[in-house]
Design a protein around this nucleic acid. Structure first.
Lengths: 143, 143
DNA sequence: CTTTATGCAAAAGGTTTGCAACAGT
DNA sequence: ACTGTTGCAAACCTTTTGCATAAAG
């Protein structure tokens, strides 16, 4: 709902149009588990709105990314995933190499580390991605 | 050269063949700046060996990854990059969002952080990727 | 000789785009 | 009315694959 109104504002500010499709896609995007691919979002949409096209899903996701409301990630399988940009809730990802589970975690020290490294190297850091690959709790036992 | 001999061993151990193409690709892979895409490697190869096909480059890169000699990375533009796996020299990446430069850096604290987070969440971490996105030294001035 | 690799072209798979019909402002 | 958007199909781009030929062991 917050994303929806922010998107509306974003669209109006640039003379773009607030369409049903965009609103629907934004809504489903919000209510879904994180790390949705375009195809998955498309399947969800078509349950309630069978006429929506896959291209519109892609176009709207790109729009959300441009508006800073979504971020696009690639975890190495060639399929892009999108997730809402939560204002104050940055998190990172653990990816299980055995079962493929993607688990979020947050760690305060990462922020410190980030600015420290940035200073050392004269970078201005806008954002970061940290991914840990290994075995999740279940899979480490079964290994 | 180390990669080349390790690759040779890897191939022999599984009854695969040591071909000119594989040796050439491994060699160029070594001598090149990091973060090479398959296409870039292909262009390099063809300067000295115009008969080599792009599929062979892909196949050999996959081989190198399977052998643990290369790692495949995706930085968000849909093109996979490959880099040699340096045994004891883990590093991470800074990506400039303005000029696209990819700069490596290393930070010891990352390792500590990693095991800490792993413990907290009951993961077994095999490897990690940390990417910082922002402005590099040049671009932050010109901004 | 037998088996695996190569190069080419074609296929795949995800994502983007051209265009005529359509909807928002 | 005007301008931007949609859905469809086709195009695109990177990566993979099938197959006949070539090279390695």
């Amino acid at each position: 709902m917050n994303v929806k109104s922010t998107l509306r504002e974003y669209l109006r500010r640039r003379g773009l149009k607030v369409t049903h499709q965009r609103e629907e896609i934004a809504e489903i995007f919000l209510d879904s588990p994180h790390h949705l691919s375009a195809e998955e979002l498309y399947q969800q949409i078509r349950e309630s709105h069978p006429q929506v096209g896959l291209s519109t899903v892609y176009r709207t996701l790109n729009l959300l990314v441009q508006a800073g409301l979504a971020s696009r990630r690639e975890f190495g399988d060639g399929i892009a995933r999108y997730e809402p940009v939560a204002e104050n809730k940055h998190h990172d990802h653990f990816i299980c190499v055995r079962c493929g589970a993607i688990i979020e975690f947050a760690n305060q020290k990462i922020e410190e580390l980030q600015s420290e490294v940035a200073q050392q190297n004269n970078f201005t850091v806008l954002r970061h991605k940290l991914e840990l690959y290994g075995y999740c709790e279940k899979c480490r036992r079964r290994r």
